[in-house]
Design a protein around this nucleic acid. Structure first.
Lengths: 141, 141
DNA sequence: GGGATTAGTTACACTATGTGTAACAGATTT
DNA sequence: AAATCTGTTACACATAGTGTAACTAATCCC
């Protein structure tokens, strides 16, 4: 499995917006700043807008603005905003046919196990705030 | 990300071998028993052989045999045997170009974070033994 | 109001990864 | 030698993610 690039792109964009706050930044400027693609970035940022993590304004001198304090944005909410499906998803597709009842039950066990893991991952993300990430970046300067 | 189907197939095969122990079972029999494909199954089982989780014998009446006690096989070693790369892998591909030093550092942070998560997942798997899985299946009969 | 600017959305080709399947090579038994 | 079985390779197919472009919708400015 691979947690998608979308999460890291989203966090980089948030970092960029935090650094340039309170000036609105358009998608092209952000994309140049973080080494991404403006069109793809708009797709990602629109999800952050829907989740009230950032705000957007149309028209000349419009762009994106961070909507919360950096110590109020944690990784889990960014993750949930950006990933429409569970990133840590176990493929335990249905067993077809008869006479494999035990194999079917095993699928259920795996689903339970991996939903536990999913919860743990999200709990861990919930403890990491944007300002923690920014601090760590600055520490390594 | 998606933890591959290979893990659940491997566990189902191990369960099948545990139930039929000590009779060697060939790939066709196991595949029929767990609803899989004999060829794909051989690919998976050959990895378990290399990791000494099961044994294989060639020739007539040959097949696969479980090589350890079911309370000595935990999920993490099956997972490691079967997945050549980390299943919970975050795509934080390199940032190209200059002037995006912070974005590059962020990739490093993400890699650290997700390697932490990887470790946690594997620790969790290390506590789950084949006999635990079998017990749970029988409990729901 | 009209043009410029920008977000938001849709579409699509390209890439990467995994899966299912078949074919063949290697090892062992009878 | 023939039959049986594992081990490996190859390849078509499906799926998901990525990069990119084009279009629509909203807003600003003159």
């Amino acid at each position: 499995m691979s947690a998608s690039k979308k999460l890291s792109t989203a966090v980089k964009a948030l970092y960029f917006l935090a650094e340039t706050d309170p000036e609105p930044q358009n998608s092209i400027t952000i994309a140049n700043g973080i080494g991404s693609n403006a069109s793809k970035l708009r797709q990602i940022l629109s999800m952050l807008v829907k989740n009230n993590i950032i705000k957007s304004t149309y028209g000349t001198n419009g762009g994106f603005l961070i909507a919360k304090n950096i110590n109020e944005i944690h990784l889990q909410e960014v993750y949930c905003a950006v990933e429409d499906r569970k990133a840590f998803y176990l493929d335990v597709s249905e067993v077809n046919g008869t006479g494999m009842e035990d194999a079917k039950k095993m699928n259920g066990l795996f689903l339970n196990l991996f939903s536990d893991i999913q919860v743990e991952i999200e709990n861990k993300m919930r403890k990491i705030y944007l300002n923690n990430i920014i601090e760590q970046i600055k520490l390594t300067n």
